[in-house]
């Protein structure tokens, strides 16, 4: 067991074999230069890491409920500020960075209000969203992060359905609208890029935010060995661009030399299998169009 790598988040958790988020948690927390205290919204990461009597967390950790990780960490952070001021910090004075983890269900949907409040109030914390594009802990239901055309248990493909009909909610723009100092979109397959962004985000004295692509082997339906390969394809097809917004300035941090067709990414996953049929050809074209339009829009934002 790699003790250094696992110093915040130990082995023995029960995430699915081949799950992506343990690498995200360790990559981000590994960049912390001081103690960290973690809040975790209900979700896959939370339930697989804290099944009584065992907790995989070796750093202080709190799970409160599904929609309030940001509100919860706000309370912890303010308690830290005043107890430090009054020389009452348990275990003595030290610097602590507060980090909240949530899935897309807990962040795009049910936890959006609590996130917005914490960002607007300017608490000193980093929110890390591991984005597996659906409610995976409850067995793969659609969330607003699920991509257009994806099949889930609540947007199944069928004779009269090609899957999710709405576009994915653009959470990054919503968070950017809070004018926080730093936010970035990252991908678990690009660990160096992720770590650099985590470093910048952790260094912010105030709110910062990371969206990290986190493929789900169980519910996207691909073999347990493939999360890195598939995550890489997401960026190589511009489906998941890597960029950061620093003090309002958009910057693409890594771009594929030659962009692959979206289908290279889609064909690796069972959730898109139904699209490779004559009937759903237009849907595939629409998805490529959406990817191109969104990437073009991002590029235009970087030129502002």
């Amino acid at each position: 067991m790699n003790k250094e790598l696992a110093k915040h988040f130990f082995s023995g958790h029960s995430a699915c074999a081949g799950c992506a988020f343990p690498a995200i948690v360790r990559a981000v927390l590994g960049e912390a230069s001081c103690e960290v205290v973690v809040a975790n919204a209900t979700g896959c990461l939370e339930v697989t890491s804290s099944l009584y009597p065992y907790t995989a967390w070796k750093t202080p950790w709190i799970h409160n409920a599904f929609e309030n990780a940001a509100a919860t960490i706000s309370g912890v952070e303010r308690a830290y500020e005043i107890m430090k001021r009054k020389k009452r910090l348990p275990g003595g004075d030290k610097k602590i960075k507060f980090v909240a983890f949530g899935g897309d269900g807990g962040t795009y949907d049910i936890g959006l209000q609590s996130l917005s409040g914490a960002l607007e109030r300017g608490h000193n914390f980093l929110y890390v969203l591991y984005d597996n594009e659906g409610y995976m802990n409850t067995g793969n239901q659609r969330s607003s992060a699920t991509p257009y055309g994806a099949a889930t248990e609540t947007t199944p493909s069928g004779r009269a359905s090609f899957g999710k009909t709405e576009l994915r909610k653009n959470l990054m723009d919503i968070v950017a609208a809070h004018h926080i100092p730093y936010l970035a979109q990252a991908n678990v397959a690009y660990l160096a890029d992720l770590k650099k962004k985590a470093q910048k985000a952790l260094a912010v004295e105030g709110p910062s935010f990371l969206t990290v692509f986190s493929p789900c082997t169980n519910n996207w339906k691909f073999p347990t060995s493939q999360y890195v390969a598939i995550a890489k394809l997401a960026t190589e097809t511009n489906f998941w661009p890597l960029y950061e917004i620093e003090n309002g300035k958009y910057k693409i941090t890594s771009e594929p030399k030659n962009v692959k067709p979206l289908t290279d990414f889609l064909k690796t996953q069972g959730r898109f299998k139904h699209l490779f049929s004559e009937k759903n050809k237009p849907v595939l074209e629409r998805m490529q169009q959406i990817t191109n339009e969104e990437f073009a829009r991002l590029v235009s934002l970087t030129e502002k």
Partner: peptide
């Protein structure tokens, strides 16, 4: 990338801790 943090470098070679490795193949 190992989800179980089960790989360490020993004499500059990857060494797997089979107590925790779930066999995912990543």
């Amino acid at each position: 990338f190992c989800p179980e943090a089960s790989i360490e470098m020993k004499e500059n070679k990857a060494d797997i801790d089979y107590d925790y490795c779930k066999g995912c193949g990543v």
